[in-house]
């Protein structure tokens, strides 16, 4: 490419190469300086501060977002740990409550059984007593009936007997 340039340059200089036409130089230099000044002002006043600001802003946003994400992750881990702790505690509590309830129920049950036993014993005693009374009543009635029957029988058979001898005879028989 360099050789082409020199060939062109050599040929162009003799044939009026536009690059070496010095009459246009002031014009080119003037417009170049105008262009460069405009670009410089636009760049340094508007474009570069703006783009630099956007880039810095983005960098800051990304950094703070990453930090926030890290914090949230820590929080999530903490929450998970707290949840697990709570779960373990709840399980232990539940087991304790179940055990307590079992003991309470057992106690109540024992008490109720003891009370029922006592009641049953009292009722048995009472019933026995009533039975004895009934039995005694019955024996007495039998004795009375036997004496009256014996007296009537003696009378009917034409015998006469005093009450005392009949009673003792019946009593002896009843025992008998």
């Amino acid at each position: 490419m360099a050789t082409t340039t020199t060939e062109h340059a050599a040929e162009g200089a003799s044939a009026g190469m536009p690059q070496l036409d010095f009459s246009t130089f002031p014009n080119q230099i003037f417009w170049l300086l105008v262009t460069l000044v405009i670009i410089y002002i636009v760049m340094s006043r508007v474009a570069l501060p703006r783009i630099g600001g956007v880039l810095a802003n983005r960098k800051g946003t990304i950094t703070s977002d990453l930090r926030a994400a890290e914090e949230l992750k820590q929080k999530a881990l903490e929450a998970e740990r707290a949840y697990n702790d709570a779960l373990v505690k709840a399980r232990a509590d539940a087991a304790k409550i179940v055990a307590d309830a079992k003991i309470d129920i057992q106690k109540d049950l024992d008490k109720a059984i003891a009370k029922a036993d006592a009641e049953i014993a009292a009722k048995t005693v009472e019933a026995g007593k009533a039975l004895d009374e009934i039995r005694a009543g019955a024996a007495e009635a039998i004795a009375t009936v036997a004496k009256d029957t014996a007296k009537e029988l003696v009378a009917a058979l034409g015998g006469s007997a005093d009450a005392r001898s009949i009673t003792s005879a019946v009593t002896a028989r009843l025992k008998g």
Binding site: S23, P26, N27, T35, I39, V42, M43, V46
Partner: peptide
């Protein structure tokens, strides 16, 4: 061509300025 004359070189320099402003501003 005087030093202040608008020429094709100034036209294309102006296009460069416009393109730069369009992209960067």
């Amino acid at each position: 061509i005087e030093w202040y004359t608008p020429t094709n070189i100034s036209l294309w320099m102006a296009f460069a300025v416009l393109a730069i402003v369009a992209v960067f501003v």
